[in-house]
Design a protein around this nucleic acid. Structure first.
Lengths: 179, 179
DNA sequence: CTATAATGCAACCAAGAGTTGCTTTAAGGA
DNA sequence: TCCTTAAAGCAACTCTTGGTTGCATTATAG
């Protein structure tokens, strides 16, 4: 039974939500499709549970007293998530099927649960600490960091190295700190 | 007949390649599906022609003598493309259906034709001019700029304002120029 | 006015998602 | 060991949808 969720996740990552076929998942898991339909009446139910089962650990908030260190740690956990099957699945789905509301809520909830919120706190503290200017455009920085990482993973399809991460964060931090 | 291509493009942008239905496109265009199937035997044929018909104008290389100005101009034309129906369609499709080879070649060709190459030249000239250090990590900068813009459009689904563009480029350029 | 090409149309086929009713298997308790 | 019950299997069916085909209709041009 656990096998079904694994297969569903694989299929989701491989083909996206739309092309995912419940009967096929059942077949690949060695089950009869009726068994699967019995437990998960809709495709969304199945996918939801598969995604939920694949995470469990949320990123805890960090506070090392240094923005760079906090960001690096945050980025590392984010990358681990985004490079994981479920992370890839969520992102791909969110990007591709941004229209489909059924999917959109599902994926967005996932991203939130996964602590894509943490960063806001980290920046707030950096500003309170005086490390960043009061009027820092936090949104811009977040967009930039997240965008670069996703571009690297989804489009260039290149693994995110530690070197890339430090270079990226150093560049952006340098750019944002003195303006 | 031209109407079919327009509708196909809309549908592609709205639902992605996989969910695009030829019969539905025909209906929306006020044609009988047989007429459409006659001219474009496969979905890929239809989409290919729809995309091809929607572009035509490629970004010409820029050389204002100032990296910031060149980048801004380049980014603006890139944004125009990415925010256009065909651009959105290509990107969404490329991201979502990166697996599907049929689609992959189609989308990749489009991106290339659209001059996502230009930036390399611009940076080469900036380095030759001495505006950037010899060992500048051009790839990182490109990844960052492209990623931020795509994140903004595809995930945040917020239009790219002039203000966002200048803030982004200023931040990144500042970060990369002195290190 | 007629020949030819383009379009419409209705019927059909095939595949795949999801449903249903019933049978079989498994497991646990008396 | 047998009986009860829950879970899984299975086959048949429905319904939707993509795609095909043969033929009728319209239009265009020589």
């Amino acid at each position: 039974m656990r096998r079904v969720l694994e297969v569903a996740l694989e299929q989701l990552a491989a083909h996206g939500f739309e092309r995912l076929s419940v009967p096929e998942v059942a077949a690949l898991a060695g089950l009869n499709k009726t068994s699967v339909y019995r437990r998960w009446p809709t495709k969304a139910d199945l996918v939801r549970e598969a995604l939920a089962a694949s995470m469990g650990h949320t990123a805890e908030a960090l506070d090392s007293g240094d923005l760079r260190a906090d960001l690096l740690a945050l980025a590392r956990t984010a990358v681990v998530f985004v490079e994981s099957p479920s992370g890839l699945a969520v992102l791909r789905t969110l990007l591709a099927e941004g229209a489909n509301p059924e999917v959109k809520g599902l994926a967005a909830a996932m991203l939130h649960q996964q602590g894509i919120i943490g960063p806001a706190l980290v920046f707030a503290r950096a500003i309170a600490r005086g490390e960043l200017a009061q009027d820092t455009d936090v949104t811009l920085v977040l967009t930039t960091l997240a965008g670069a990482i996703m571009h690297r993973i989804l489009i260039e399809q290149t693994p995110v190295t530690e070197h890339f991460l430090t270079a990226l964060i150093d560049m952006v931090l340098f750019g944002v700190k003195r303006r």
